[in-house]
Nucleic acid binder design. Structure first.
Length: 488
RNA sequence: GGGAGUGUAGCUCAGGAGGUAGAGCAACGCACUUUUAAUGCGUAGGUCCUGGGUUCGAAUCCCAGCACUCUCACCA
């Protein structure tokens, strides 16, 4: 698609300007530039009645209007934009440098802070106040429409971030959300920890793992699919409240809701249970909404989501009945339903089949925040069974706009039951569950306090709170097929 | 993997009932000291994704492939 000869045509012109800048004795790649004020702050403090105001900002030239002996520049930094005015009479010796500026270049601008005739707050750069900081050698995207080619936006995120300001804003919000969660949990006495990303047994979930190899030990290792079993070992160790915000890796397909590496916040709270986790989830998400300065009503595509508490809590069996018309224990009806939905049920366990029907009929309809509670116990080998009805596990999954956003259990702390569940899992299971984590069972034998555990998918939470309908819009560098010479 | 769509200038996009193509922005030149996507005049810029076929002639029609998007399937 990109014609090399043409790319060179534009780059050539900019190379020539770079050479002219060098000929002036100026380093076209700049150096340390101190005392920079954010553009937004400079604009915010401006006062009409003060002639002595000055400002010093730095950023990228995103617009440039050359009116002969006067040039107006829109300078963008991480906080926004500010106009820079370059006038021949003010700049004097630096005027030739001003005439060499291109859109995309990075400059520093210092001078009087004032207004133009039309009322735009402007830094009127004085001689010596123009600092060349870095030359952009490529033609930037179209100034009004920005970068629209979706593939190129992800591949060249470094361009996307400044060509499309809403992209930068969304990633700033992501950072704000993660910081809010850390602050909230830390204030509650949770300790942030880091557990292994490379594990000899990929436990804590059922997913296909990525495999890597440690040379010195000649040992295959798995990138973790979950930190769960390590965090619960810490409960045994007496860290009664722990959390980790980090990447999980699952070797599965890509979609609007799935990236092979994704960020999970997982926490464990001794002496809690899954109901405590529901309250905590509402509070955590509430803290994020508050920090972002949002109303509880959030727009997502065509849907409006209302996060006002409390959120709906509905039993798995009831939702199944409501959306599929089948009772959770009516297997003939569920088999029939599965066939009607063209689910391939050959060789499928009953519980797995029920869950297939659940996923196809129920999940996509859960738009408003909904805690699905009381899952069939066989689907939850790490969760404690209900004392009142052992067919069910004390587990919830939180759904919003049809997406699983969180998952929580009352944690199973009985080593004998855990051992049995592991054994049961091993029969006919996929690769992630072929090895038993016997050390985890040993840990439970040393006594793990009863506890609640919660995982929140950070990427999906950011999607919901920023209105991003694809996970790739909340991951800076999503996984893409590499560009090869053959497919270019 | 199935289905649908898209691929044209650096960027954003038109167009093309078969006769080798256009706009805006960006670039280059000229003019302009208060612009706001500055403006006006001029110039330059294209393997119309790739390969094959039909045809006197293909960017357009046909076939195959590649890439991307959406969607379905897969995914505790």
């Amino acid at each position: 698609m990109t014609n090399q000869a043409d790319t060179d045509r534009f780059e050539q012109q900019r190379q020539e300007k770079l050479a002219q800048i060098e000929a002036m004795g100026i380093d076209p790649y700049g150096s340390r530039y101190d005392d920079v004020e954010p553009a937004a702050a400079a604009k915010a403090r401006y006062r009409d009645d003060d002639e002595s105001q000055r400002a010093r900002c730095a950023g990228r030239i995103v617009l440039l209007r050359d009116i002969g002996k006067l040039i107006f520049i829109t300078l963008r930094d991480r906080t926004g934009t500010i106009q820079v005015g370059l006038s021949k009479s003010l700049l004097t010796a630096q005027w030739p440098l001003a005439k060499l500026l291109d859109i995309g270049d990075i400059i520093g601008a210092a001078g009087k802070l004032g207004k133009t005739k039309t009322g735009e707050i402007t830094i009127w750069v004085e001689d010596g106040g123009l600092t060349f900081l870095s030359k952009c050698l490529f033609q930037p995207p179209e100034k009004f429409h920005g970068l629209a080619d979706i593939d190129q936006r992800y591949r060249q995120r470094y361009v996307d971030l400044w060509a499309n300001p809403e992209v930068l804003e969304r990633f700033q919000k992501r950072s704000t959300i993660v910081a809010a969660i850390r602050r909230f949990l830390t204030a509650r006495g949770f300790l942030e920890v880091e557990t292994p990303m490379m594990q000899t047994i990929a436990g804590g979930a059922a997913a296909k793992p990525f495999i890597t190899h440690h040379n010195a030990l000649d040992l295959d290792l798995y990138l973790r699919i979950s930190p769960e079993l390590f965090l619960k070992r810490l409960l045994v160790g007496g860290l009664e409240r722990v959390f980790e915000i980090n990447r999980n890796f699952r070797n599965e397909g890509l979609s609007r809701h799935h990236n092979p590496e994704f960020t999970m916040m997982e926490l464990y709270q001794a002496y809690g249970d899954y109901r405590a986790m529901m309250d905590l989830t509402e509070e955590i998400v509430g803290a994020c909404i508050e920090t972002l300065g949002l109303n509880t009503k959030v727009q997502f595509g065509d849907a409006q989501i209302d996060f006002a508490r409390p959120w709906r809590r509905a039993r798995y069996a009831d939702l199944l009945q409501e959306h599929s018309g089948c009772a959770v224990d009516d297997l003939p009806a569920l088999r029939a339903k599965a066939r009607a939905l063209s689910i391939d049920d050959a060789g499928m366990d009953d519980a797995v089949l029920v869950n297939e029907v659940f996923e196809t009929t129920v999940e996509r309809n859960l738009t408003a925040p909904t805690f699905v509670i009381d899952y069939p116990a066989v689907l939850c080998p790490l969760a404690k069974r209900s004392r009142t009805d052992p067919r069910y596990a004390e587990r919830f999954e939180l759904f919003v706009v049809g997406m699983e956003l969180a998952n929580a259990y009352t944690e199973l702390n009985d080593p004998a039951v855990q051992y049995e569940n592991f054994l049961h899992q091993l029969r006919g299971q996929e690769e992630s569950l072929t090895k038993m984590d016997t050390d985890y069972v040993t840990a439970l034998k040393y006594a793990m306090p009863p506890a609640g555990g919660l995982g929140i998918g950070i990427d999906r939470l950011v999607m919901v709170l920023t209105g991003a309908t694809t996970i790739r819009d909340v991951i800076l560098f999503p996984l893409l097929k590499p560009v090869t010479p053959e497919n270019k």
